[in-house]
Amino acid sequence: MAPLLQIFILSLLVSLIYCADPITKSCSQSYTGSGIETNINQVLSDLVTKASVGGFAVSSYGKGNNMIYGLAQCRGDVSSGDCSSCLADAAKALPVVCPKQTDARVWYDYCFMRYDTDNFIGQADTSSPVILYNVNNATDPDAFDKAVSKLMNKVNSEAVSAGNGLLGREKTKFTQYITIYALAQCTRDLQPLQCAQCLSSTLQYFPVYCSHRQGCRVLYTSCMVRYEIYPFYFPLDSKAKNPGAAKYATTIVHPH
């Protein structure tokens, strides 16, 4: 198959992900009345409009205890079209999956969106991570874990380097037939040091949940890391072989 055709097919398959169900959600703090709901709708509309242009936006609307703060961000490697579509899906989904809640967050493959009555902008949040891991183990698991560790440190460093927009993407050839792909990203309201601390915090869960796994991701509100043995970030690797559908287990780590 010609490389350009491979890239087109992979792009088509991956571009379908944004319209799937959310990866996960988080909801808390019930409210009553229409005032907050009006402010939430205004913030969501504002986030979709602004973040569709640059891939990131913050917004606020309302007064006093009814003030709503919002943030939206797309994965830094996706196209503007996929970003806009994901944001539109997220804005529609949030009030539905978190009905009458003032602290609402939703994660998709291509984007993340949240709103809250507390002003969280510029604050790193590393509570209650969501962890998804491939149920299949890697071959030569100890060597695989070492390769993953080295790769994750590399993408985390890349994410906080100047000019990268708090996004890191790298790959490493593990064997002749297996390439490991990794991505790290922080929300762009954070400073580089905050981002570095957030990304570093994700790695504490790797020995517990990701060890020997063919793929794994840790999702915080403020940052996320992920690795797979297939290309999942853009530009897609045209030389990669499709490993078939992977099965994932999900764990939410609640604070003690």
Results as ranks from 00 to 15, higher is better:
Val78Glu: 06
Pro3Asn: 08
Leu193Asp: 15
Ser26Lys: 13
Gly62Glu: 00
Val58Leu: 10
Pro255Thr: 11
Asn137Gln: 15
Asn156Phe: 01
Leu4Phe: 06
Gln204Pro: 01
Thr126Asn: 13
Leu47Cys: 05
Val155Lys: 02
Ser15Gly: 11
Gly163Asn: 02
Ala138Lys: 02
Ser30Tyr: 12
Val160Leu: 00
Gln194His: 01
Asn66Tyr: 05
Met67His: 04
Thr221Asn: 13
Ala143Trp: 01
Cys19Tyr: 15
Asp125Trp: 03
Leu190Val: 03
Thr32Pro: 05
Asp189Glu: 12
Ser161Arg: 10
Asp237Gly: 05
Leu87Asp: 03
Thr187Ile: 12
Cys223Thr: 07
Lys92Met: 11
Thr250Ala: 13
Cys111Glu: 12
Cys86His: 08
Ser45Thr: 10
Pro95Tyr: 02
Ala182Thr: 06
Arg169Lys: 09
Phe206Gly: 03
Lys150Trp: 05
Val78Trp: 08
Phe8Ala: 15
Asp237Ala: 05
Cys86Lys: 08
Ser149Val: 04
Leu10Met: 10
Tyr248Leu: 12
Ala196Leu: 14
Val43Lys: 03
Tyr233Glu: 00
Ser52Asp: 09
Thr172Trp: 00
Trp107Met: 06
Ser59Arg: 07
Ser200Leu: 11
Tyr133Asp: 13
Asn242Tyr: 14
Arg114Met: 11
Gly76Glu: 00
Phe232Asn: 08
Gly35Arg: 01
Ser200Glu: 15
Asp46Leu: 02
Glu37His: 10
Val130Ala: 13
Asn134Trp: 07
Asn156Met: 14
Ser28Leu: 02
Val155Gly: 01
Leu44Cys: 06
Val53Glu: 13
Leu193Trp: 07
Arg75Leu: 04
Ile121Cys: 06
Ser30Lys: 14
Thr49Gln: 13
Asn41Lys: 08
Thr251Ser: 09
Tyr230Glu: 11
Pro99Tyr: 06
Gly244Lys: 08
Asp118His: 05
Cys223Asn: 09
Leu87Met: 02
Leu219Cys: 08
Ala91Trp: 00
Asp103Leu: 14
Met67Pro: 01
Cys111Val: 03
His254Lys: 15
Phe144Lys: 07
Ser26Asp: 15
Gln191Lys: 14
Asn136Asp: 15
Phe8Tyr: 10
Met152Gly: 00
Cys98Pro: 06
His254Thr: 15
Tyr230Lys: 04
Cys216Asp: 13
Gly244Glu: 02
Leu13Glu: 14
Pro22Arg: 11
Met113Lys: 06
Val130His: 15
Ala138Trp: 03
Lys150His: 14
Lys25Met: 07
Pro231Glu: 07
Gly64Trp: 10
Ala245Asn: 13
Asn66Trp: 00
Arg213Ser: 09
Lys173Trp: 02
Cys216Gly: 12
Thr175Ile: 04
Val160His: 01
Trp107His: 12
Met224His: 09
Tyr230Ala: 07
Leu193Val: 11
Val97Gly: 01
Trp107Lys: 07
Cys223His: 09
Phe112Ser: 13
Arg75Met: 04
Lys154Trp: 01
Asp145Arg: 00
Val106Tyr: 03
Asn242Ile: 05
Ala88Gly: 06
Gln42Glu: 14
Phe120Ile: 11
Tyr133Phe: 13
Val58Cys: 10
Leu151Val: 03
Gln42Thr: 13
Ser11Gln: 11
Gln204Thr: 09
Phe232Ser: 12
Ser26Met: 09
Ser222Val: 05
Leu10Gln: 15
Pro141Cys: 07
Ile121Thr: 14
Asp89Glu: 12
Ala162Val: 06
Cys74Ile: 02
Trp107Glu: 04
Gly62Arg: 00
Val96Asp: 12
